[in-house]
Design a protein around this nucleic acid. Sequence first.
DNA 1: AACTTCGCCAACCGCTGGTAA
DNA 2: TTTACCAGCGGTTGGCGAAGT
Length: 304
Amino acid sequence: MRAAMPPINTKNMSTPLEEESELRRGPWTLEEDTLLTHYIARHGEGRWNMLAKCAGLKRTGKSCRLRWLNYLKPDIKRGNLTPQEQLLILELHSKWGNRWSKIAQHLPGRTDNEIKNYWRTRVQKQARQLNIESNSQRFLDAVRCFWMPRLVQKVEQASPSSSSSSSSSYLKEMCTQSSVPSQLSSCCTVPSFPTASPLANKTTDISNSSSVTTQNICPTDSINNISDQTEIPQHLTGSNVYGHTTLDQCYNIDSNDYGMEGISFASMSGVGFYEGTPSEGNWMCNEMSDDLWNMDDIWQLRSI
DNA sequence: AACTTCGCCAACCGCTGGTAA
DNA sequence: TTTACCAGCGGTTGGCGAAGT
């Protein structure tokens, strides 16, 4: 956690109007944090504009609210997102799109800002590296076929105490820990990767691989059944999500092609998804910095 | 050691919807 | 019904530290 610093940058320079009203901007100081925290402890949150004045803060109500919700609130969780949380974000984003606050409601202690930042810095980075739009169906497919199984795997690895070998039990646990309803618990089993060492033939067209057993990963119904009192726009759900086919399709990891039917190398090649040899920087083999979605990692899984 | 680039994330901005007057 | 205000949301910016050269 970065310590709050006094405003020193130009962004914090007050305009004449702001000087007149003495409104402060930029990073919060410890003193301001204390003022806000103590005031809310005594009077509760809400009515932010009034709160800002009454607490003696030279901040807008909006600024106070943001500071409280994203930083000072006692139940804010700090540190990296767990694989469970990442998985949940990917799932819920595929369902709801950029509804950050809505997604955050299912990740206790995490803020919409944090999730939004995660998406922008981690997820969209992968999209950039794959040279595809982060909201495209291709990217969605890639997320489901590679990243999510990887996360499920991580969840499994992180929970060795569980007696069940099925990822669904871990996800049940995950759903129990978070506020996600248990409907999600029926989803997500991991594809069993072949045991042959993958690293020797990274350039092999994996659509030719044949020894993967079929298992389902996160049926859409499970996600769709997440309790949701509000209407979900049609374009964000099911068959119309991102203007494409149903979410279910890619969840079926086919025994012959890793569930790659929607993300085949042939279909990728047309958009630069897979072109040339590993040394040419194609998406399979370039050095992705994010170990959560590194094809080397994915290949290594096959030898587990 | 100095400089540059990159990634993270706190905070701001503009917009929207709800509500009270 | 209209207007003004407020809370909340999602998009964007920019500072800082880490990593790379």
